[in-house]
Design a protein around this nucleic acid. Structure first.
Lengths: 241, 241
DNA sequence: GCCATGCTTCGGTCTGCGCCGAAACATTTG
DNA sequence: CAAATGTTTCGGCGCAGACCGAAGCATGGC
């Protein structure tokens, strides 16, 4: 059972509050400097540097020097998924214990945020609901599928090339695209993840439907986005309309 | 960022070597007594008791008193998935560092084992390969789907009622059963998980196709199992034939 | 009733590690 | 080259927590 030691090593790396805060921040998929991560973790730069060195050594985090800055990002999607699954368990623990004290910061994140490479929060859930209601996507607890109608819709709003990425192993049988559902830790309902979720999120940023809120993982929906999401996809309930 | 504390709490619980060993043992989905878990973690019963109390308080583990024994099991599937994803990251770290020293114990586990509620190892991968090759199942990195032919096959070998469980949210649109792929940490290839994988595994135990190896998470395939897997499902390459 | 067995609580020791201040090092800017 | 900024290394402090021995509770068998 030598692998047990690696398991404990990885988990305990994520188990320190400062490192957990950094990993949490890195969950939006962007890269940050050591000082930025030091701020979010509320430790001094030298402490953060030590933490980051450990996580880089364990291949949780990748570092990319650029001038006098060193940009850190999550090393692999597997790391993001691990963090996601820990958040999952942690949030169910939270519900079990007590109603959490929710600051305005948390409220903004709950409304709309990125989850590594896809959209989450009320926005992510509302989009998934709309896609399911419109017959564009079918979701179960375990998996998801984009229907023919969904492929058409995605093509109309400019999401292409998804099939190739999502069907690597399934070689397009039945002309359907499989995708991954992700239980939202704040909403406790599924949203769209995986290659399809990532493609949708990327397209939304590119087309200016959503914009990042500076300094957080939160996003805001632009007027153009509101039009697409409501009229194009049929999203309801995210705004009070 | 109050949720950050919960995250770190959960991760650090999994990050202690003794607790990691216990969680690892609990990954076969069965329940164990505190003393049994103390043995696998190589600590004294009183130490194990303390660890288990913490994990129960954090809702990682469920306890069920039965006479003078107290049986512990993983509290939820979400916990199992978390452990799985940590193993994922840990095993990729292992490959990165050095060729692992593989004992005979590890070899047996690599051949065939349970992964919480489904089959993994070379057996799990070979079964998934056969199901894909036969057109019974389509798998991508993100998700999977049982085809019509697959539903027929599963019905023939006695797996029923899967639809209801697997299609809770998808309400059977297109008559397809969605399922979850799971990247095998020892084989680095996907096997069948989720509700469908669990149903297949449960049926295999019930029908006597596989049996547990006492004291480990490993399983062996019986003669009946070999017949079903090879002739019924078309599995190849697990045995040298 | 008694003893054996499984489990937990308590008290004390000790290692590990997170933290910061100070200082060195690197890189860009002026 | 010097100054400013980002980052790392080093050394020492202090606390959290993992561990075990011993003793205290339960439960089941006799």
């Amino acid at each position: 059972m030598a692998s047990n030691a690696r398991f404990a090593e990885v988990a305990s790396l994520a188990g320190d509050p400062a490192r957990a805060a950094m990993l949490h921040a890195l969950m939006d998929g962007r890269a940050f400097t050591a000082s930025e991560l030091a701020r979010v973790a509320r430790v001094t730069p030298q402490t953060a540097s030590g933490h980051l060195a450990k996580m880089v050594a364990a291949n949780l985090v990748q570092v990319e020097p650029q001038g006098r800055h060193r940009y850190h990002r999550l090393a692999t999607p597997a790391v993001a998924q691990m963090i996601e699954s820990i958040m999952q368990v942690a949030s169910s623990l939270e519900m079990k214990r007590a109603a959490p004290v929710t600051g305005p910061r948390d409220a903004a994140l709950r409304a709309a945020r990125t989850c590594y490479d896809h959209l989450a929060g009320q926005l992510g859930v509302a989009l998934a609901d709309a896609l399911v209601a419109g017959g564009y996507v079918a979701l179960t607890r375990d998996a998801g599928m984009v229907t023919d109608a969904g492929i058409t819709l995605f093509g109309e709003i400019g999401i292409v090339g998804m099939d190739a990425a999502a069907l690597s192993a399934g070689h397009g049988k039945n002309g359907r695209v499989l995708c991954r559902p992700c239980l939202d830790w704040s909403e406790r309902r599924p949203h769209l993840a995986g290659a399809v979720g990532a493609a949708l999120c990327a397209r939304a940023f590119d087309a200016g439907w959503i914009r990042r809120v500076e300094g957080t993982r939160g996003v805001t929906v632009t007027a153009a986005g509101r039009r697409i999401f409501c009229e194009g996809i049929g999203m309801r309930g995210f705004w009070l309309d």
